[in-house]
């Protein structure tokens, strides 16, 4: 069952067309990856789905709700962890979590403790966000996004700028979320998409070039590795 349906979506900026007739179906409970090089339109697509940017044309339904007319209801069931960590820097980790929980009227203490344990934040609870390492900031950012108990979670480049250890730690956390909620993850790290995602859409210059599982895409392109498959798909388009 599709939780997100995107049909012929376009987005025009002043001089460029960022999305050119994108159509996608994302199934409930899946970890769906949006893969593309810089400027492919991944972040624009996520911004539109979160109600942060207005689309130019096309239709989108999220959990059966129309994005144009039901955006306030949609905002109650989605959350986003942006590319930038976007946390309150002078607040402690616990204060950040409580602040966002209050915004969504989600004051379930047990759930909060569960989130703290899942993300391994108990050791830094009373530390201000600005003193955290990059890895912990990312963990906090994703933990914040989950505090509202969203049905759909958008993770925009969640491991960007992290060292290999912090990245692997975060992968484990994301993997544990699989099946519990629908996750839409953008990345330009092929290894990340290959390891985490149930299904992938390859985007380039605002168009969806291929969708399917990593194995499907490798088979369709007659390649051995996902990196080769990705390069072939993008090169063939160009």
């Amino acid at each position: 069952m599709s939780i997100i349906s995107i049909n012929n979506l376009t987005k025009d900026y002043k001089t460029t067309r960022a999305l050119k007739g994108v159509s996608l179906e994302i199934e409930q409970g899946k970890l769906f990856g949006l893969l593309g090089v810089n400027g492919a339109g991944k972040t624009t697509l996520i911004k539109i789905l979160c109600g942060l940017t207005k689309k130019t044309s096309g239709t989108i339904t999220v959990n059966g709700l129309n994005l144009d007319s039901d955006i306030n209801s949609i905002k109650q069931i989605i959350d986003v962890s942006p590319q930038e960590t976007a946390v309150a820097t002078n607040l402690t980790v616990l204060e950040n979590l409580e602040f966002f929980a209050n915004i969504y009227n989600s004051c379930d203490k047990e759930y909060l403790n569960n989130i703290i344990n899942t993300f391994g934040l108990s050791g830094v609870l009373n530390q201000t966000a600005k003193t955290l390492s990059g890895g912990y900031k990312r963990r906090l950012s994703i933990a914040i996004a989950l505090i509202s108990k969203p049905k759909i979670l958008f993770l925009d480049e969640p491991t960007l700028g992290l060292d290999v250890f912090a990245r692997r730690e975060l992968w484990k956390i994301i993997e544990n979320l699989k099946g519990k909620i629908t996750i839409i993850l953008t990345s330009h790290y092929l290894e990340e998409i290959e390891n985490l995602c149930d299904e992938v859409a390859i985007l380039s210059k605002g168009e969806v070039l291929k969708t399917g599982t990593v194995e499907d895409i490798k088979a369709q392109t007659n390649t051995q590795t996902f990196e080769d498959a990705f390069i072939k798909v993008v090169k063939d388009y160009e």
Binding site: N72, K75, V80, P82, T85, A86, A88, I103, Y104, S148
Partner: peptide, 11 residues
């Protein structure tokens, strides 16, 4: 810091 951007996607 995009903190506001994040809040714009909240209710």
């Amino acid at each position: 810091t995009f903190f506001l951007k994040r809040l714009y996607s909240s209710p």
